[in-house]
Write a protein that binds this DNA or RNA. Structure first.
Length: 432
RNA sequence: UCCCCGGUAGCUCAGUCGGUAGAGCGGGUGACUGUUAAUCACUAGGUCGCAGGUUCGAGUCCUGCCCGGGGAGCCA
């Protein structure tokens, strides 16, 4: 029995007899010679069967190889210029493990609605495999970045009683005798508490928004990483963001070039992603957008079109800082130099991918924070623990949240955020 | 919640002026010893989203509904 190997290992095994297990992508036959294209998750391989060199049973099995049949092929690894990938398997035997019939996703075009109805099977396609691998790299790079900088991971609750930013748009669930609980839309308030314990912390997990958003940039369930740093002001915060995003992009370029190539991602724009990133204040951005012909009046949040237009002016992500207080969350620190604004920033990805980061310095003055909670008519009791952080040794601190799927979509150059997660949850998608 | 677009074979779509339902791919059968989404021949496959209306006659025109997509708002 030859040893079983993954396809990715075969270039190092030229001349050896090996067994490979995988799934059929396509078959081609010319009567007495046949080609089976298969995949195993690590790579793609062409097996070559010659009528006179395989047992009758293997040749008969060939006729039953529909798309996505699982099988084991044994044979000699051979370098051949004609083979996709440089090596192929000259088969000596072939065994069907699990038959397959009428696989719904054929090697032709499909619409996105159909593909998402078959998401559990669509994951097997080359493109989706490449995206999954890039996402994995992004997630690993995020963890490594913070580990290398001595951040401590703090897992924040998904079920919460108090609410995050604004009321509404939360998923509610029954919680025993304690009434209604909500699925977290941010871990930020909790990492603020943890920052006073551990200094540099982050949380990384799923987050939930019950917004009825139907756009290519929105999911109801998505992954977000939220660092929070004691003694960082807003400028420190922006510096951390540009180093962080540059690190993640560089890692993908370093380790996932084959996947990005598979996705036909133009990697040149990604090569330009290194600190420092351009910075522009909200007020200057409004002026600039006016000059560019997009009439945004001061005091209103930047819309999607305005964000895209602004981001197009730069070859790397742009940091837009100090937004008007009234369009931002209650916990953001008032800007002493211009109290109409707060010390926050968004990061807009290039190439029209929009906001990938939202961050701010937090209001550390107890009375000002309480006043803002009252202004927003938030339930004061629910925030008493949050106010405690300002009562017992308040401290300057800042943090941000980065949306994983938006970041993956940008790095992969894919048009739709829904392809950036294995099983997307949207307004109309709870299945599969 | 609002605006725009769509729904015809398993999939992607065409269907003219209202006049017998079409193509490619996929499936099936067969041919072929180096294919790269192989090629070639033959073949099966339809509740035209649902309901009603106009008409001699509706995939096509009208009304209502259902489902989906994109965008706005909101955000990562």
């Amino acid at each position: 029995m030859p040893d079983f190997h993954r396809i990715a290992a075969l270039p190092q095994l030229v001349g050896q007899t090996v067994a490979v297990r995988g799934w059929v992508m396509t078959t081609r036959s010319s009567g007495k010679i046949a080609f089976v294209a298969l995949r195993d998750g690590t790579g793609y391989l062409q097996a070559v069967l010659s009528r006179q060199e395989v047992p009758d049973a293997a040749w008969e099995a060939l006729g039953k190889l529909a798309q996505e049949t699982s099988l084991e092929v044994t044979g000699v690894v051979r370098a051949d210029r004609r083979a996709p990938g440089g090596v192929e398997l000259q088969a000596s035997d072939l065994t069907i493990i699990g038959p397959s019939h009428d696989f719904p996703i054929t090697p032709k075009e499909h619409g996105t609605a159909f593909l998402f109805e078959h998401r559990h099977l669509w994951l097997r396609s080359r493109r989706q495999v490449a995206i999954a691998r890039v996402r994995h790299e992004v997630v690993q790079a995020i963890r490594d970045f913070f580990y290398e900088r001595d951040f401590i991971l703090v897992d924040t609750p998904i079920l919460t009683g108090s609410i995050g930013e604004a009321a509404g748009n939360l998923f509610a669930v029954e919680y025993f005798d304690l009434g209604t609980a909500y699925l977290a839309q941010t871990g930020q308030l909790y990492v603020e508490a943890a920052a006073a314990a551990l200094g540099k912390v982050y949380c990384f997990g799923p987050t939930f928004r019950a917004e009825k958003s139907k756009t290519r940039r929105h999911l109801t369930e998505f992954w977000m990483v939220e660092p929070e740093v004691a003694w960082n002001d807003s400028n420190d915060n922006m510096k951390l963001q540009e180093e962080f995003v540059s690190y993640v992009v560089a890692r993908c370029l370093e380790r996932r070039r084959p996947e990005l190539a598979e996705l036909e991602r133009d990697m040149r724009p990604l090569e330009a992603i290194r600190p420092p990133f351009p910075r522009i204040s909200y007020t200057d951005a409004v002026e600039k957008l006016g000059a560019l012909g997009s009439g945004i009046e001061w005091g209103r949040d930047l819309g999607g079109d305005a964000e895209t237009l602004l981001a197009k002016q730069y070859d790397r992500p742009v940091l837009v800082y100090n937004y008007p207080k009234q369009v931002k969350a209650f916990y953001m620190k008032e800007n002493a130099a211009d109290p109409r604004t707060v010390l926050n920033n968004d990061m807009l990805a290039p190439e029209g991918y929009g906001e990938i980061i939202g961050g701010s310095q937090r209001e550390d003055d107890h009375d000002k924070l309480l006043a803002r909670i009252r202004e927003e008519k938030l339930p004061e009791d629910a925030y008493s623990w949050y106010l405690d952080l300002r009562k017992y040794g308040t401290f300057v601190h800042s943090g941000f949240g980065l949306g994983v799927e938006r970041t993956v979509a940008w790095i992969c150059g894919i048009p739709h955020i829904r392809e950036a997660i294995a099983f997307p949850r949207t307004l109309y998608k709870l299945w599969p």
